[in-house]
Design a protein around this nucleic acid. Structure first.
Length: 344
DNA sequence: CTCGGCTTTCCTGATT
DNA sequence: CAATCAGGAAAGCCGA
């Protein structure tokens, strides 16, 4: 399931259920708050600065006052679109608008006040443009894209790791040279799923277990610092082909709807800020590519931090799991298929 | 073979 | 408390 880019925390006082204002359209077509009690897993609280710009909240756009920070509610991103309530549709519109650099204040949000997810999915392009002449097409396309991603992607219905080709077959291309073409397409693309070629690779899980070399260790009992030799050392003559660098792998994950935004997502595509959604899974993927089952996020993140020096990445202070592409990183500022409308 | 770039591994300490 | 972040240190891998 596609997930939001936002992580949120419940207020400290939340126990198992919480009460908070829930925004609904009433019979007078007024978007107002009613207090509902919901299990805490259903909706997640998120501070407004992570949800939407406080000064540019959708409620402001339709002449409503923006609720107090702690009252804002995060859209439940695991919910199928067909089950969305109208306010979730509105919120999602705003997220889509922001991701595409469209000012949602220009979108005719009130026109969609009674449109729930089910209705949204059944609306034709004409119906969209009737409601919003300028942005109807944009919204229609966004809905189609989302539906496509939903259909193609159920959580943990990720391309199985054993379908990831060993690193000698992963060839990264420079995206700046191949406009908008996801470099990771060699991974998990249709042709690598079902063909006989894919089966010719030893599934990752069935490889013989790596037996960790028991290192002698120093007198103190501590293991020596440094990288232990690979148990299965490659012969000099049998060189492995080049595999992409870590940041390129990360960049390419961000371009694949199979992984973005479920495993990693853009926080701000314009600025190149992204966040690990499932850091463990990303590390696992990286480990698969590097044929290193011991890869962890801890180790991956160390490598990420080394990029600060070379300006491939820049630190985002105070944000966990958040990084930003630096001036040396290339290819991320592309026509991202996850966010860009082809008509744009 | 050497060297440098890029990790990988481990660790300590701080922060969330 | 568990995760995560920040870096230092050291070693492996690999291409030039």
């Amino acid at each position: 399931m596609p997930q939001s880019c936002y992580s949120g925390m419940w207020p400290e006082e939340s126990q198992y259920h919480t009460q908070y204002p829930f925004y609904e359209w009433d019979e007078h077509n007024v978007y107002s708050a009613t207090t509902l009690t919901r299990p805490m897993d259903e909706h997640k609280y998120v501070p407004p600065h992570e949800l939407l710009d406080f000064d540019h909240h959708p409620l402001s756009a339709i002449g409503k006052s923006v609720p107090y920070a702690s009252e804002l509610v995060r859209r439940d991103t695991s919910k199928p679109m067909k089950d969305w309530e109208p306010e979730e549709v509105i919120q999602w519109f705003c997220e889509e608008a922001r991701n595409s650099n469209v000012d949602f204040e220009n979108i005719q949000l009130p026109q969609f006040s009674n449109v729930n997810g089910c209705k949204l999915q059944n609306m034709t392009l004409e119906e969209f443009t009737q409601k919003d002449y300028h942005y109807g097409k944009f919204l229609y396309d966004a809905v189609r894209r989302y539906m496509g991603r939903e259909a193609a992607f159920l959580d943990d219905n990720l391309p199985p790791f054993n379908n990831l080709r060993p690193k000698d077959e992963v060839i990264y291309t420079d995206l700046s040279d191949s406009l908008g073409k996801p470099a990771l397409s060699v991974i998990a693309d249709n042709d690598s799923y079902n063909d006989s070629d894919a089966s010719s690779h030893e599934p990752f899980e069935t490889k013989p277990p790596v037996i960790a070399a028991k290192l002698p260790g120093p007198p103190g009992g501590r293991r020596p610092v440094g990288r232990p030799p690979k148990p299965t050392r490659t012969k000099r003559g049998n060189k492995e082909k080049k595999c992409g660098r870590l940041w390129e792998f990360i960049r390419d994950l961000l371009l694949k709807p199979e992984y973005c935004p479920s495993l990693i997502c853009w926080e701000n595509h314009e600025e190149g800020i992204f966040r690990f959604v499932r850091s463990d899974k990303v590390a696992e993927l990286w480990g698969t590519i590097k044929e290193n089952p011991k890869m962890t996020y801890e180790k991956l993140s160390r490598a990420m931090r080394y990029y600060y020096k070379s300006q491939v990445l820049q630190p985002v202070l105070g944000r966990r799991l958040v990084y930003k592409f630096g001036p040396t990183a290339r290819g991320w500022r592309t026509n991202n298929p996850n966010f860009r409308d082809s008509t744009k």
